Structures are given as C-alpha cells and as structure tokens.
Amino acid sequence: MTKKIKVKKEGKSRFKKFKNRLSFLIVLVFAAFVFYMGWIQIRIPEGVHALVYTKTGGYDNQLISPGQFVWRWENLFPGNMTLHFIELKNSREEYTMTGYLPSGELYGQYINRPEAFHYTFEVEYRFSIKDESFVSLIESGTYYSQLIEDRNQEYVAATNEIIQDFFKDQDSLNLEGISEAEKMLSLKISESDPRYQLNDLRIISYQYPDIELYEQTRAYFLEELAVLRQAELKTEQIQTELETVTSRKMDLLRQYGEVLSEFPVLLQYYGLDKEKIDPSLFQDFSQASESP
C-alpha cells in the first residue's frame, strides 16, 4: 500500500516538473519571438539607413543607422509598422583655388620671377545630410532622389565659396599651421548650413607667396612708376610749349602773307632792299614753305 502511494507521488512530481519545464520553454519561445519581432536592427541591409513609419505614431524623428540596436513594440502588431530603407551617401568633394595676388603677375615679371606671387590651395572635405533634415523631407512629402542631389550641389557651391573667401582673408593666412586653419575653416562650414553635417576636412595642398617680398616689390614698382609718370608729364609739357611757339610763328608768317597779298608793292620794296626787313622773317618763311 505504501509503495503504491509513493509511485503515485513520484509520478505527479515528474509530471509537475515536466509541466513547469514546458511552460518555461513556451514562455522562453514566446519571449524570443516577441524580441525577434521587435528587433529592427536585423532587418536593415548593409550600407543603408532605415526610417520607421507606424500607423499609430507616424514617421520617427530620426533615422536608424546600420549596427544601431533598436527594439520597437509597434512591430508586434501585424501591418502597423513599415521600414523605409534609405541610402545616405557620405559625399566627398575637392576644391582647388589658384591665382595671383592683386597685380601679382605684373610684379613677378618686374622682378623676373613670374610665379613668385602665385598661390594654390587644395581642400578635401566629406559631408552628409543630417538625419533630422532627411526626416523632415519625408514628413513634408517633398522627398525624391533628385531633390537630395540638387541640395547637395547647392551645399557644395556654398561651401566652395566659403573656402575661397577664407583663403582670401589675410587673417586666415596668418594662422599658425595647417591644423589651425583646418579647424577654423571646418567651424565656418559647419555653421553655414544646419541641414548638413561636415564629417571631415583636410587641406591637402597649401602654397602661398612671401607677403613681405610682395609688399616690397609692390612699393618699388609703384615708386618707379611714379618717376616714369613724372618724366612723361615733363615731356608732354615741353612738347606743348614747342607746339605753342611754332603755332605763334606760323600765325606771324600768315599775317605777313596777308599784308604782302594786300600790298604787293611791298614785295618790290623788299626786293630792292632786303636789309630793311628782318632776316629771321625770311628764314621762318622758308622753313614754313618747306615743311609739309
């Protein structure tokens, strides 16, 4: 009798353990299923971002990056959540700026060093559109791939203009070292457009003329130019005076000619005695007749 009772108790105990284990296994499988359904990261392909849209909450305010752990309970309800996969490229651009300092080519020829005042800057930078900016396009319903390309081109044009203005500024050229210039330029670009993120910037080529030599050459050139200008003005003044004297003599000869035409008898008078007329008059008259 006692043995039968023990067998029944052992059977109930084994069944209870089996039941507990089975329940735990069911709970574990259900928990794993719930975890898998809400695990978003595993559904994102390589090299793309994901934007979550749910019928209960609309679009998320940020993108999900590859490798970022995200678990969403909204995906537990069938048909409630949709993932939009978006490829956000980290764009790379290079900008090269070459030229001469003001009148630098002329000053270089003046000292027989044509390239002495020529400068070259080459900058490489990488950028991408911010997640929140991209999400705002999705929410507004204005997103399409060409729009992103157009905005990227506008950003590149504006950034290149900032780089150009930066290197034209004398204060920027006086910065100590390339690293300091990179920091200042990166700060200016980062503050220019809140929709974009500057990921990297490097000055890969930097060649700028000797400013002290440029200023000295410019001073010498302008000084010599002023001397030449004074000489030209003096020459023009002398030429003007000669033209004035010649014009006066021609007017005098013209007046003599009119008098002789009006009184021909004077020709006979002067022909009889040429000593009564100023000899220089005949000399001037002869030179005027021979001149074309």
Rank of each mutant, 00 (worst) to 15 (best):
S103D: 09
S103Q: 12
S103A: 13
E105K: 11
L106V: 09
L106A: 08
G108K: 00
G108E: 00
Q109V: 08
Y110F: 15
I111G: 08
N112L: 05
N112Q: 11
R113P: 05
P114L: 07
P114A: 12
A116G: 04
F117T: 04
H118W: 09
T120L: 07
T120F: 10
F121T: 07
V123T: 05
Y125E: 01
R126L: 03
R126F: 06
R126Y: 08
F127P: 01
F127T: 02
I129E: 07
I129W: 00
K130G: 01
E132P: 00
S133Q: 00
L137Y: 09
I138F: 14
S140M: 01
G141N: 08
T142W: 13
T142S: 14
Y143P: 02
L147A: 08
I148F: 10
I148P: 00
D150M: 11
N152Q: 03
Q153L: 12
E154K: 15
E154L: 06
Y155D: 01
V156K: 09
V156S: 00
A158M: 04
A158K: 14
A158T: 06
N160H: 08
E161C: 05
I162Q: 02
Q164D: 11
F166M: 03
F166C: 11
K168Q: 10
Q170Y: 01
Q170E: 11
S172W: 04
N174I: 06
L175C: 04
E176S: 11
G177I: 13
S179K: 15
E180D: 15
K183Q: 12
L185D: 03
E191W: 11
S192P: 04
S192I: 07
S192Q: 12
S192L: 12
D193S: 15
D193C: 12
Q197D: 13
Q197G: 01
L198C: 04
L198G: 04
L198V: 01
L198N: 08
N199V: 10
N199D: 13
L201Y: 08
R202I: 09
R202S: 10
R202Q: 14
R202Y: 07
I203Y: 04
I204D: 10
S205M: 05
S205V: 01
Y206L: 03
Q207A: 02
Y208M: 09
P209Y: 05
P209F: 11
D210P: 07
I211L: 15
I211M: 15
L213A: 14
Y214T: 05
Y214V: 06
Y214I: 06
E215L: 13
T217R: 09
R218C: 05
Y220L: 15
E223H: 04
E223F: 06
E224H: 06
A226V: 07
V227N: 10
V227S: 01
L228F: 10
A231E: 15
A231L: 15
E232M: 13
E232P: 06
E232H: 09
K234L: 13
T235C: 03
E236H: 01
E236L: 14
E236P: 02
I238D: 12
I238G: 02
I238F: 11
Q239D: 15
Q239T: 11
T240G: 10
T240Q: 13
T240C: 03
E241N: 07
E241V: 03
E241H: 06
L242V: 12
E243N: 14
E243W: 07
T244Q: 12
T244Y: 10
V245K: 09
T246P: 04
T246M: 10
S247H: 13
R248N: 04
M250Y: 13
